[in-house]
Design a binder for these strands. Sequence first.
RNA 1: CGGGGUGUAGCGUAGCCCGGUUAUCGCGCCACGUUUGGGACGUGGAGGCCGCAGGUUCGAAUCCUGCCACCCCGACCA
Length: 492
Amino acid sequence: MSKNLTSRAEDYSKWYNELVVKADLAESSAVRGCMVIKPYGYAIWEKMQAELDRMFKETGHQNAYFPLFVPKSLFEAEEKNAEGFAKECAVVTHYRLQNDPDNEGKLRVDPEAKLEEELVVRPTSEAIIWSTYKGWIQSYRDLPILINQWANVVRWEMRTRLFLRTAEFLWQEGHTAHATKDEAIIEAELMNNVYAEFAENFMAMPVIKGVKTESERFAGAVETYCIEALMQDGKALQAGTSHFLGQNFAKAFDVKFTNNEGKLDHVWATSWGVSTRLMGALIMTHSDDKGLVLPPNLAPFQVVIVPIYRNDEQFEAVSEKAESILKELKVLGVSCKFDKRTTHRPGAKFAQHELQGVPLRIAIGPKDLENNTVELARRDTLTKSIVEIKDISVTIKNLLIQIQEELFTKALDFRNEHVTEVDNFDDFKKVLKTKTGFISAFWDGSSETEQKIKELTKATIRCIPMNNKMEEGKCVYSGQKATQRVLFAKAY
RNA sequence: CGGGGUGUAGCGUAGCCCGGUUAUCGCGCCACGUUUGGGACGUGGAGGCCGCAGGUUCGAAUCCUGCCACCCCGACCA
C-alpha cells in the first residue's frame, strides 16, 4: 500500500476512491456494482441510522418491514413510477438450480422452475407497501399511517461508485398515508426538514432545502422536496428526498377511505428516503489530503489515545494513565479508544487515525507523566497542544462541540462562497467552468429550457429553494420572463 | 448500454510491440534482534495456474478469439 493518498487537486475522483478503501470504509465486491461495507464504514452508517431513527420516532413514525420482492403486476400498477424504474430493475424469473447435464460440476437454472409471475427486486417499495396499505385502511380513523423501513434496494446502475451509486444500497424509506392533501404535504415538508437538520447538526453538512423541477421529480410524485449539498469539487449532491405523492398510489392500488363526512376518497401519500449515499456526502464534505475528517457526532470513536513508551515499565505507567482518562471520558459520554497495540509504532498509529478521521488524538508518553500533561491533536485543523491532565475531560468535551461547529461553519462558508448569481448565459458557462458550485439564475419555468441548458452545460436545476424570493427577471437562457432564481449545478 | 483504457503475489509495478532458462522491483506479510514523542532498521523467509475460458505454436504473461471485472468519458441515476 502506498503511503499517501492521491491529492484532491491532482485527481478528485481518484482521491475519493482511494480514501474510501484506505480508510477501511468499504470495498468493491465480487458482485458487479455492489460493495462490501467494512466494519469502520458500517459503524459510521450505524451512527447515522441511530440518530435518524430517533428523529423519525420523535416525529411519530414506527418501523416495519416489507418484502424484498415485488410481483410484476403490482410493480406496474403505478405507471409513472414503474416506467421511471423499469430500466434498472433486477428481476427474479426462476426459483431453482440444478446440476448442468452438459457441464460436470456446474449448476444451471432449472428451466422447469420458471415462476408464474416474475418478481421485481424492489428499487423502491411504494408498490408493495401501497398494495398492503389497501388492506389496512377503510376509515379516516385508520389514518394517518406513519411507517418507516430500513432496507436494501437494488437499482441496476450502469456506472457505480462506492457509496455514491451502487447497484444495491442501504436506505430507509418512509411511507405515510393521510386523510387530507394538506396533511400529506405537511408531512413531506416535515421529513425534508428532518433530513436537513440531520445533515447540518450531525453530518456538519450545510444543505439547501428546495423542490425539484418536474423533470427531476421522483417517478410517481406530485412534488419532490430535497436537500442539496455541495461537495469540495464544486459538484452538487442530492442528499435526501421527500415526496408528496398526491393520490397517485392510492388510485393505482385502489386505496380508499371514508372521511368524517361519510364520503369516500382516495388516500394521500408521502414517501421519503436517505441512503448510504450520505456516507459519500460525509466523506466529500470534510475530508482532506491526509484522509477522512469525521464530525464528532458521527465518529465511531471521538478520541483515540496513543501510548508512547520505551520499555515495559513505561508502557504500564502510561497505560494506567490512559485507562483512567478513558474512564473519565466515558462518564462524560465521550467515546474513546485506547490504541494499545504493541505491534505498531506511534507514528504509524498517528497516520492511521488521521486517515480514518478520528476527531481528537491524545498522546501520552514519559514526558507527560512527569509534567502531568498530554498532547492533544485535532484532526480537522491538524493542530496540537499540551493539556494538563486535570483539565483533559472538560477540554475534550468542549473541543468536540467546537469541532462539530467549526466543521459546519467551514463547510457553510465554502458553500456560500460557491453560490454565484448570474444574469447571462456566458457568465453561466464561465462560472460553471472556472468557479463551479451552485449558480443562482433566472429560469423561465419550462422543461425545454432546462433540458437545453443541461445539454449545453451538463448543469441541471438542483432545486427551487424553499421560500424562494419572487422577483421579476429574464431567463438566463431563453430571455423569457421569469419569476424567480433557481439553483443550477453539475451534480453527482 | 456506446467510446477509450487497464487486469502480473495483499497493494503498486517491470516484462508484452519483437513468444524461448528459475517472471522484475518496491511496499506490505512472517521469524529473530535492536527500536518506539510523526508512517523504524538489520538479517533471514514465505508468497504467483501472469483476470477467466478457448485457440495458434515444439514452446504463451507475451500472438488470436470470447467472456468477466475495474477505471475514465458519454447516456441513465439516490
